[in-house]
Design a binder for these strands. Sequence first.
RNA 1: GCCCCUGUCGUCUAGCUCGGUCUAGGACAUCGCCCUUUCAAGGCGGCAACACGGGUUCAAAUCCCGUCGGGGGCGCCA
Length: 468
Amino acid sequence: MFHQSEPFLARRDKNGVVWSQLARASSLTAPDSYAILGTKKMVTVRFAPSPTGYLHLGSARTALFNWLYARHMEGRFLLRVEDTDQVRSDVRFLEEILYDLRWLGLDWDSEPIYQSRRFPLYRQKAEELLAGGKAYREGEAILFRVEKGRAVEYDDFIHGRIAVRTDDIKDQVLIKSDGSPSYNFACVIDDAELGITHILRGDDHISNTPKQILFYEAFRLVPPRFGHMPLILGPDGAKLSKRHGGVSVEEYRNEGYLPGALVNHLILLGWYPGEEHEVMTLEEAVGMFDIAQMGDVQAKFDLQKLRWLNASHIMKRTSAELLPLIKSHLTAGGVPLSGVSDEFLLRLIDLYKIRLKTLRDFVEMTDCFFRDDFAVDEEGKKKYLAKPENIENIRLLAVRLEALASFAPAEIEAACRQLAEERGLKAAGLIHPARLAISGKTSGAGLFEMMELLGKEKVLRRLRGVAP
RNA sequence: GCCCCUGUCGUCUAGCUCGGUCUAGGACAUCGCCCUUUCAAGGCGGCAACACGGGUUCAAAUCCCGUCGGGGGCGCCA
């Protein structure tokens, strides 16, 4: 179960359990406890998902920053599955979470470890405390005795010094009556054994930290450095929830967001890379990341900015890179792709990628290229196809285009402009009605390119459809 | 109720550590103009903030105190 190579400077205790941070210094909470110990440790962080649901944006952000720090420091990023709740945990959730992490571009070192397989260890450690008089039994449970009248202090690397009185901390459950370990206890046992050097987690854990530090003390271990990042809120300042437009990574993937864009936004919600670097790739972020610059103020998830970032990331991708993604969105959107060549799709992507906010937008924007029964914009109809002269112009345009030997944009444009001039119109006076006729839309790519991709036959048929 | 974190444009933020260079800078959104075949993209410009009240100081967004606001926690959930 414990597949890792042994942590740096680890040693085994009399029970054969590997411990990596045996305390020798008296100042357990000294900010540079590692320096005091005289040991240079590889940065080791972890992400500890609980497989009781999908990967929430907040969790994704926690994983992301831990990963960033590990990669920047050339340290290790471990995964620990907190599946002590046998009832609510499900492997399906875990698989989804791992899938989402990979999709975001986050990889981990070593196999994940599972808390559910380590119950004997937690019990053994709790019994040590029992034997040492630091814990007591209450029924089937084992509780930790919190010494009153003192303070627990630590230097949070995001918030600075935090101190709480033990009078405000109740005795803590170590092992529950059903034999499973409490969250805080299993967490400490595992973090110590894994040699975790830095714990970066959400602000919601800030009050757990003093309790955990008490456990480290009880085992005479030097605690890791802790940092708590503020939670992300919804646009209205309330807790991020479904009604804000999606809380799971999966939802954003399905909406057509690029992982790089989602990650970019999540990064911006906790760390500012400088005015010239707001749009960045994960790789760039790894290089620039500075944990000391992380923000300590809660930020609101801004869908508008995400959309803009997504558009920026899409524009930077080549059409070939976008192709498989676009294809899956087309398929998901019910567009049959049989008989559609990659060459055709590539050219269509060339034309439209600059206009996309999400990949999914492509499906709606380009529907006229895949079907003949596309919807026609009502406002546009009134504006461009209501007058008889519009219809006549379209009819004449069809005649001109039909005579074209080459159906390339340049030739189409020349024909359009010439006809417009002959009819005493501005080119736009012909272009807008024509676009509406062939696509049903008042917006889109350049008309001549659209026509070329659509092909002469369809263009003529559609023009004649509105101007028989 | 108690404990903890936090408060610069609508939003994300720079500045705060070492008070004066801040008539507070950038980005998203928004508005206007340019470009233009529409929509985008791009270029240019506008609007817009130091939560409030006291101090300290020649001088405070920057230091101190209080108030108010936002968030989190106080489980044999994780």
